[in-house]
Design a protein around this nucleic acid. Structure first.
Lengths: 150, 150
DNA sequence: ATACATAATATGTATCTACATGGAAACCGG
DNA sequence: CCGGTTTCCATGTAGATACATATTATGTAT
């Protein structure tokens, strides 16, 4: 009878292998750490790393609707819907109907949002540069690209 | 007067550079995609990728308390506290007092939890192998390691 | 021993994330 | 034009995550 307190050696060994190698765990761990770093760097701007990224996604589009934005940003449609809401509440973005198809909504930055993003860019650039001294940022980008095939 | 609908070219250009290169965004994107893949692969087991990882962390320890586990797993103490609760609710883990210091709690897998983890290991191994054909898992591990320095 | 500081954990609050489902608009076959 | 289907988005629900703060127990100086 194996006590839970002292699991079988093999289980512990397997668990250690999982902990070390699991790409799921490791990718989330890296994301947590990198995001925490950026959040600290961006704290003064009143933007989180996630918000900055999403605003940049929006600014990068010429004009597009929520579904397309979800696609491009690799977010669940429902997740996007909610992440947009916090930006909307702070009046950084605006969401409006598309007259030609009333099911669709279009997003864009407000003037306030554009100014906020503009102010954030150099801070982000600086933070990313410091980050790049510790983590190979081009590799991170490759990873994001490659994982799309999953 | 620049309309928000058509932000300054420079802003859009900067935004595109951010979207492409931001290690924060890219790391979260990769983590989302990898985690979603593993969640699908693990669906039958009644475990999410995050739960599996955390259970493995617990199993990998000989004996330890919550603070140490938070450290090792790179999670906020408060985050860990809550993630453990869902495992506890399903009776996969047990949390008890440490008699020598009543502030501390110790965690371990229940028999049910150990069996569940044991069953999950081969499934994880298979999933990780398939994942590795698309994403270099050793690189992901390096990233997690390197980002600790942030 | 008592009062104050420190340590370990839990809880309040809020954002990020996703799956399942709901509601409204558009589309399409007859 | 009408009814069924599909598309787009929002919402219910729930886990993952973190910061700030509260709570309880330990340690310490007097």
């Amino acid at each position: 009878m194996t006590l839970a307190k002292q699991p079988k050696k093999t289980l512990r060994t397997d668990a250690r292998a999982l902990v070390e190698n699991c790409a799921g765990w490791n990718s989330r761990l890296a994301a947590r750490r990198i995001t925490a770093f950026l959040d600290r760097e961006l704290a003064d701007l009143g933007l989180s790393a996630a918000q900055l990224g999403l605003m940049a996604q929006i600014a990068a589009l010429t004009d597009d609707t929520l579904g397309a934005l979800a696609q491009r940003s690799g977010l669940e449609q429902s997740t996007l819907s909610r992440n947009l809401r916090t930006l909307e509440r702070e009046q950084l973005i605006e969401i409006t109907l598309v007259e030609t198809d009333l099911r669709r909504r279009a997003v864009w930055l407000t003037e306030t949002g554009a100014r906020r993003l503009e102010a954030a860019i150099p801070v982000w650039r600086e933070a990313q540069a410091r980050l790049a001294q510790v983590v190979p940022t081009d590799i991170v980008r490759q990873l994001a690209d490659q994982s799309e095939a999953l």
